[in-house]
């Protein structure tokens, strides 16, 4: 196992769209082990996507189980993930191992239904919400070459919207 180097913004490679995984072999599982080690070495990192280490395949890992008092599904290896349903947009604060020293607010669906493959090629469907759903969507953005910086929302108009009543 080896910890991999994380690409940081403004590295152009973070904008690259990743390719679907076609072969579920030992090499894939070895890479996932390295990817997971890299995620766990980052301070507070609850997810990582393959393009963050310069591998442009549709692979992500999410594990939010270290956060207290939230619903979660433990360690998730997400290969070729697709969101098939989503609902209830909410705002949350995000940071990224590829964007050090900056956090910002992003709107995302609070509830999602996800289809994905695990590292052995078995297909799964998952319903999740809240913090875990946010982490999964953040990782899936990486697979599309998007960063949370591309989705920042203004602070001022977050909660209150001005209206003049006559």
């Amino acid at each position: 196992m080896a910890k991999l180097e994380i690409l940081t913004y403004p590295d152009e490679r973070l904008k690259q769209v990743s390719e679907s995984v076609e072969v579920f072999d030992q090499a894939l599982r070895d890479f996932i082990a390295d990817l997971e080690e890299t995620m766990r070495a980052g301070p507070g990192g609850v997810g990582i996507a393959a393009p963050q280490v310069g591998c442009f395949q549709r692979i992500a890992i999410v594990d939010v189980s270290s956060k207290p008092k939230i619903e979660h599904h433990g360690r998730l290896v997400l290969i070729n993930p697709e969101i098939v349903e989503y609902a209830d947009f909410v705002k949350g604060r995000e940071g990224c191992m590829s964007v050090p020293d900056y956090t910002g607010n992003v709107m995302r669906p609070d509830r999602i239904t996800l289809e994905y493959f695990d590292e052995h090629g078995a297909q799964h469907t998952l319903q999740t919400s809240g913090f875990e759903a946010r982490a999964i969507q953040h990782e899936m953005d990486h697979l599309e070459g998007l960063l949370f910086l591309d989705r920042l929302v203004s602070r001022r108009n977050d909660l209150f919207r001005r209206k003049v009543y006559q």
Binding site: P43, R93, E94, E139
Partner: peptide
């Protein structure tokens, strides 16, 4: 005064 507190959970990934 109406006051509401929301914890900020930062998701780093």
């Amino acid at each position: 005064v109406q006051a509401k507190l929301n914890p900020i959970e930062i998701m780093i990934a």
